[in-house]
Structures are given as C-alpha cells and as structure tokens.
Simulated scan of single mutants.
Amino acid sequence: MSALSYSEGKMNITFHGRKALVTGASQGIGRDIALKLSQYGAKVTAIARNQQLLDVLHSEDPKITVFAVDLSNWDATKNVLSQIGSVDLLVNNAGLAILAPLLDVTEQQIDSLFGVNVKALMNVTQHVAKDLISRGAAGSIVNVSSQASMAGLQDHTVYCATKGAVDAFTRAAALELGKFGIRVNCVNPTVIMTEMGKLGWSDPAKAKPMLEKIPLGRFGEVEEVTDAVLYLLSDRSTMITGSTLAVDGGYLAV
C-alpha cells in the first residue's frame, strides 16, 4: 500500500500508486486529508455536496478530482462511485451535526443525521469493499467518528447515537473484511479548530467547561486529525484494524 522511510529523523510517507477517496472533502478535516493525501502521492477523489467549495479545492490542487453529490441519496451516490472507479484508500469523513435536546428532537433530524453519518458511510464502504475484493486487493478504510461516540454530550443525543453506530460498524466491518486484507479503523476527535469549530467554541464561557475535561487543556487542530488518519491508512499500521483512535487530548481518559 504505502511506503514509509526515515530521513533526518523524520518519518516520510508516500501513497504513490494508490487511489484514495475522501468524503466530506470540501472543507475542514476532509479538505486537509484530501490535500495531504495528494501531497503524499495518492491519486485523490474528493466528494462533497458543495460544488463551489469543491471547485476551490480543485483549483488549489488540480490533481484532485471532485464530484458533488448528496451522500444521503443512496442511488445518486452509487452512480458517482461507479464513475470514480477503483479505490484503495477510503476516508469516510462526511458528517452532519444537528444539536437539540432529546425532548425536542424531530423525526426529520434523526433521519438526516443517520442518513449522512451512518447510512451514507455504509453505502460508500460497501461499494469500495466489493471492488477491493473483486480485484483481490488489500485496502485501508478510515471512518471519522467522534469522542461523542463514547461520551454523553449535552444536546447531542442523536449525534452521539450516530457516532456510536460508526464505531460499532467499524468493528464489525473489520471482522468481516479482514480475511480479504482490508483494514477498517476510525479516529475519534474532540472539538477541532476548523473554521466551524472556531465559530462554535471561540466563546470562552462555552469553551471553559469542555476544556476543563481535556487533560492537555486545549482543543485539537485539523492537522492532528489528518496525521492520525494518514497513519491508519499507511503500512505503518498494518496490524491495526477494528480500532478507535481517540484524538482528544485525553478527554475520554477522565
């Protein structure tokens, strides 16, 4: 899959000759993952809903192929995946967050969150896994989950439920696909300082209670999640599958 070497005390990673697919790649963590994978030699395809943001990504790195699609639409997603062709490395990053108290949650909110965070992830994974198996090729799949999969958060009942489902799916998929040489893992970030994260957590009064639960005393940066994803995609992690890697500054350890 990937080749790693050490030079001047640093670990160099390359994905030359590998085809990578990143969902939710138009902004934030997914965008950074797509750019870094391309930088390290992968032939990257980026999927998201927003064509305008995808065009900006493509203009920044013309080597990245982009497709706009609503991943919650099962058939439309299948159609796009059939156009992309074979994939060796998959990052299921697309996600939706709708926050509401349990007693106010609506059916539409539940359907929307599970449609993107769980159903779409299963759809893309199924397609990629079938292709890998048909080619007799090994592959690596990384799902972007959340610390919310393992900790209750205020007004996050449905979001927590979807991310718990992502973790459970990761373990079960790893069990089924391991015999084909396909590894499936997930990363579980805390609050990450994407542009959206900065908007939501820049208020010191709101941030203080969360920060007090993080032993390292800060929120995460986008590149810290990207580094974890690239590690799990790479051959440096060939004996790791079915795992949940917390990128949370110790939040879940408290």
Score class of each variant (00 low, 15 high):
R171H: 09
H16T: 15
F67N: 05
S112I: 06
Y251A: 08
I47T: 02
L216Y: 01
L233E: 02
G17M: 08
L199F: 10
L89I: 02
M1S: 12
S7M: 11
G9P: 00
A174F: 08
L99F: 15
D70N: 11
Y6D: 12
S234Y: 04
L81W: 05
G242Q: 06
V87K: 12
A100N: 15
K163C: 13
S146G: 08
Y6T: 15
S134Y: 01
A172Q: 14
V69L: 05
G41M: 01
L102K: 06
V142P: 01
L96G: 09
D61A: 04
T23R: 06
G197Y: 02
L177A: 07
T244M: 09
K208A: 06
R183E: 04
A48P: 00
F180W: 13
N143A: 06
A138N: 09
S59L: 06
K43P: 00
S146A: 07
T244Y: 03
H58S: 11
D111P: 04
L35E: 01
L175T: 13
V118S: 03
Q39I: 04
L71K: 05
G41D: 03
S7P: 03
K10Q: 13
T45D: 08
Q109D: 10
T162D: 14
S2C: 06
N73M: 01
E212A: 05
T14C: 08
D111Y: 09
S202W: 01
L53Y: 03
G249W: 00
R49N: 11
D88T: 10
D88C: 08
S86K: 14
F219S: 00
G28K: 01
A205E: 13
E107R: 14
G136S: 08
V222Q: 01
V56P: 02
I214D: 02
P209F: 00
N185W: 02
A48T: 04
Y251M: 14
E221L: 08
G200S: 08
E60T: 04
L199Y: 09
K78R: 14
V184D: 03
Q109M: 14
Q147H: 09
Q27F: 09
G41K: 02
S134L: 10
N79E: 11
I133V: 12
G28F: 00
A97G: 14
N73V: 02
L199H: 11
G197H: 03
F180V: 05
A165L: 11
H16N: 12
V158W: 10
Q108I: 14
S202Q: 07
I141V: 13
